[in-house]
Amino acid sequence: MQRVEAPVLTVEADAVRVEARLLAGGIECPDCGGVLAPWGWARRRVLRSVKGVVRVRPRRARCSGCGGSHVLLPVFVLVRRVDLADVIGTALAWKAAGSGARTIAARLGRPVETVRGWLRRFERRAEHVRVYFTVLLVDTGPDPIPPAGSVSRFADAVAAVVGAWKAAVSRWPDVGEVSPWHLAAAVSRGRLLSPSWP
């Protein structure tokens, strides 16, 4: 039996700002465009960063229009991952640059099987990720230049993610305050490594 993932909406990292927007009716339902309102909390999570652990308890919200509920996931989190998006993104970038799973695991202080899992999941979706982020790059950038092809689909997909981030930064400089992997988490609704996305 396949586990169904809860509907997720990616929001900014600042929980206080998210709560204020939610209470003011400033967060839109991604399914119907209705207004989301507070509706409890998701389970607490202890996540790993490069420097230690981060504790989060994502807000749940319910739509006044369609009645659907959503977990408001901070932009630095990927669905069903214990490591932050930047940690996983760093591993993906190192793999694209030619490092192997054992080397990456040692550099990040993570189990080899965990790192292999990230790399395999990304590899399976690499072409879809490449296409999606290349389209985002072209649609976003004021004078877009899609990344040139490289030695692998994996590296092409990573280049597309970084290219889309650069295009977004060139149009909206505030986007530069987040990493390419936060952008990837936001665009994918936290499902960058999930088989259901894109």
Rank of each mutant, 00 (worst) to 15 (best):
P147D: 07
R62W: 05
A157L: 04
A105C: 06
P173Q: 03
T90L: 14
V175E: 08
L119P: 05
R80G: 15
R62D: 05
L72V: 03
F133R: 03
K95A: 13
V151R: 14
A61K: 02
A106Y: 07
L84N: 09
G100L: 02
P173V: 05
D174S: 14
R116H: 11
R62C: 03
V135N: 14
V169I: 01
D139P: 00
E123K: 05
D83A: 15
E177Y: 10
R124L: 11
I145D: 12
L119E: 11
C66A: 00
A160D: 07
A157V: 00
F122K: 02
V158T: 03
G117F: 02
L78S: 01
A85C: 08
C63R: 03
R189W: 11
A85T: 01
A97C: 10
G98K: 06
T103L: 12
C63W: 09
L72I: 04
L192I: 04
R125D: 15
L72W: 04
G190P: 13
A93D: 12
P142L: 13
V135C: 14
V158K: 05
V138F: 02
L183V: 13
A157C: 01
P180G: 08
R171M: 09
I88V: 15
Y132W: 11
R80I: 10
E123T: 01
V178R: 11
A186F: 14
G100F: 04
V151W: 13
V175L: 08
R171T: 12
S170N: 11
V131E: 14
A101M: 07
L183S: 08
R81H: 12
A93E: 15
V158Y: 06
G190V: 10
C63M: 07
L183A: 07
E177T: 14
L84K: 04
A186K: 10
F76K: 10
P142S: 13
G149N: 03
I88R: 01
V112Q: 10
A106L: 11
A91Y: 10
L193S: 03
G176D: 10
S152D: 07
L193F: 09
R171S: 14
L72Y: 06
P111N: 11
L137W: 02
R130F: 02
E123H: 15
A157H: 02
V112T: 12
W181I: 06
D83V: 14
A126Q: 04
G117M: 07
F133A: 02
R130I: 00
A159T: 05
V162Q: 09
E113P: 00
R116M: 13
R189T: 09
R116D: 12
W165H: 11
P180I: 08
V112L: 09
W118D: 00
S188D: 09
G67L: 12
W172F: 11
A184T: 04
T90G: 13
P74N: 10
R125Y: 05
G65R: 12
A184K: 04
A61H: 06
E123Y: 04
A91I: 12
R124V: 01
R59T: 10
A159Y: 08
P180V: 04
P147W: 08
A96N: 04
G98A: 04
V161W: 06
R191S: 02
R62F: 07
H128Q: 15
L137P: 07
A101W: 10
S99V: 00
F133L: 06
V87S: 05
G109I: 02
F154K: 08
S188W: 09
S64Y: 08
G89S: 01
P173T: 02
G109D: 06
S179G: 06
